[in-house]
Amino acid sequence: MIGALLNGLTALGSTVTRRLERLGLAARFSLTVIMVLWPALRRTPLVIREVYFSGVRSISIITVSGLFVGMVLAVQGYEVLQRYGSADSLGVIVSLSLVRELGPVVSALLFAGRASSAVTAEIGLMRATEQLDAMDMMAVNPITRVVAPRFLAAIISLPLLSAIFSAAGIFGSYLVGVKLIGIDDGAFWSQMQANVDFRLDILNGLLKSVVFAVAVGLVSVFEGYHAAPTAEGVSSATTRTVVTASLAVLMLDFVLTVLMFRGLM
């Protein structure tokens, strides 16, 4: 009885210690990455290559998802708004929800699944095939050469992708709302312009996606760099990246929303 209790306590203690150790490791790793950002940024070709793989290759999925999210929002929004005779403000509802929330959040989630998982797998495989150690032997800092460019690419790509997502979504809602359902063209745009503020809504949305990019980028490079050097280790690191990054995005979104928009309530 007491033996089982002690065993349970020991298991709990070791779990907590391991978690804390990993958290400390992650914090120290993040600091090292941030320290070498400037030298990494000066090696632009590396960063551009990573922007190509993370950002450019994600344009299609982001555009198509944005378009369909916008179209669904238009149908659902119209269904509720026409009950109150205010279908004209469909543009406001769609654009505010896209610019403030869905644009940054959904594009960060898609980015975590589409690009960050690939980054983790790539770095993890470099670890497993001892390429990172080889770089170290040749006096090339793998953090500057491999990790930092991928992190920077996330910070450059995600805000742009999120803007593309919002623009595509608003275009999708225009197609469904104005062209299909038949809301007045002028009212759709003018109500939108009267109620969406550049600084409060659009810049705050952009700021959100920069924060998400930092979180998703750090998670993906950390999990890859510290993956167990086996096939199984790489696969579980990739899974952890998607899960941790998605959860981090959703939690950060709540915190940022409270900080940014609480004054409006």
């Binding site: 742009l160 803007a163 623009a167 659009i202």
Partner: peptide, 17 residues
Amino acid sequence: FVAIGILALVFLALKVG
């Protein structure tokens, strides 16, 4: 890619905001 991203931002700023 960067051009489309900036274009989307300009669209949001001018046409939506």
